[in-house]
Write a protein that binds this DNA or RNA. Structure first.
Lengths: 245, 245
DNA sequence: TGTACATCAGTGAACGCGCGTTCACTGATGTAC
DNA sequence: TGTACATCAGTGAACGCGCGTTCACTGATGTAC
């Protein structure tokens, strides 16, 4: 795997490189005009093509280009999470969870418009093809591995109030996606941790936390640590739900 | 307060009514073409005006119209939350929390594009004026009232591990916004509950939970109940963060 | 109550601009013999 | 090694369309005396 690896003939190498440049230009456009304002003409101009129609040699249309950006975005976010986790892979589950959170956050803050492409308002008129699903699941897959390791060290539903049967029934499709040996409570806790992570990122990336913290990273670290602990993902028992008045 | 209340002269009443119709048409547009595709010409056409320039009698420009939609969106979401909470105002804090969650969720699912306007990707080139801030805070204000009632019934940080000094320092601005008699741990727990709510709504409204649940409402009820319990907002002690390995 | 004037709502043409996509084409790169 | 042909990259004109905003204007509604 060399730096100039892909493509045998010069033509193929040039094609791969220009494809990359087109996507880079599109990503730059995204920042200034948003997904809806992505312009084929402006992109062509950016990469030095004299005519927008030349882009149709590389992407069959605007929507295909958008799809490529979305798939790339999911992949980049997934890679950021995997790379961060790999550095602490032999440490505690909590350390790995925090690494994933910080990795995803760093990527999201560095690429807010790609984050918006993924977790922001859907682009009207655009329908994501099936291709996106596989790359979309990378972070959830990473989290599932964490849950499996938790289960492997004997951490199962015995510490938790198992979710009511009605809830297990309600989330049957999710439970079917997870490995069958994972206790349902662990799946739910993981799902909730993921939900919290997306909430924290969306609020921060989209500007709803502006001027709310003197040290946003420190607060993020605390909330992620606490959410994992409180959800029972750190080896702490969690009380069964009932209210006191 | 009658149904045809606002405006003294017929002209003023007509003006108020058409202003409302313009915003309604704009909201309908939002659904089909997104915020970036909001077209003055199409809106004028929708409300029966022969010329787009007539809209400038009602809004100084497209951005002002967008701002009105955003302010209205925050207000509508706030009203939905308040109305739902009012129905159970004398019940437990948990019941009130759940009412707020379900109220906000019902509104968000019924008005996904307005939700997107608020919590989705920011509109490029658009900067929200200060007017939006007050209406944006309605749900957080409602949640703060809940926290105060929790504090009033003697529910304070004594049950919790108080957050480390570094974290309290990191979130100084948020603590300054909250009533000064609220224990900092309660503020953080409320802030986290709000973060979770936004995460759950964004995932569901933006389609990331499609086909994940047989009964999305039942699951939502469970997760919201559990997040409040686990964060220690239901009268349960929460273990202090520390990992077991 | 009636008149003169000011305010306001809505019109339609115009400005200057940008858009995605198609199509027939030129010239360069690659392939088969 | 050299030639004939196929494939591919990029061009530029054209199609048909829509955009926000401005401006001078007409006619209706409201106000002051």
């Amino acid at each position: 795997m060399t730096t100039t690896s892909p493509g045998r003939t010069p033509r193929e190498r040039a094609r791969a490189e220009l494809t990359r440049e087109i996507k880079d230009a599109a990503r730059r456009q995204l920042a200034h005009h948003g997904a809806a304002g992505l312009s084929m003409r402006a992109i062509a101009n950016d990469v030095g093509l004299l005519s927008a129609s030349a882009l149709y040699r590389y992407f069959p249309g605007r929507d295909a280009l958008l799809t490529a950006l979305i798939v790339d975005g999911y992949a980049a976010m997934g890679e950021a999470a995997e790379a961060a986790e790999a550095l602490v892979h032999t440490k505690t589950v909590m350390a790995r969870w925090l690494a994933i959170c910080h990795g995803v956050r760093a990527w999201s803050l560095a690429n807010p418009h790609e984050y918006g492409l993924i977790f922001g308002s859907p682009i009207p008129g655009y329908v994501a093809p099936g291709d996106t699903v596989a790359s979309a699941a990378r972070v959830p897959v990473l989290l599932t591995a964490l849950l499996e390791d938790l289960a492997a060290i004997g951490f199962d539903a015995r510490n938790h109030g198992a979710p009511p049967a009605a809830v297990r029934r309600a989330m049957r499709p999710v439970l079917a996606l997870a490995p069958s040996d994972l206790p349902s409570d662990l799946v739910i806790a993981g799902f909730m941790a993921w939900t919290y992570l997306v909430g924290a990122l969306s609020l921060e990336v989209f500007g709803h936390r502006d001027a709310m913290h003197d040290d946003a990273t420190a607060y993020f670290d605390y909330e992620m640590r606490r959410i994992a602990t409180n959800l029972g993902l750190a080896g702490q028992p969690v009380p069964t739900p009932n209210t006191r008045r």
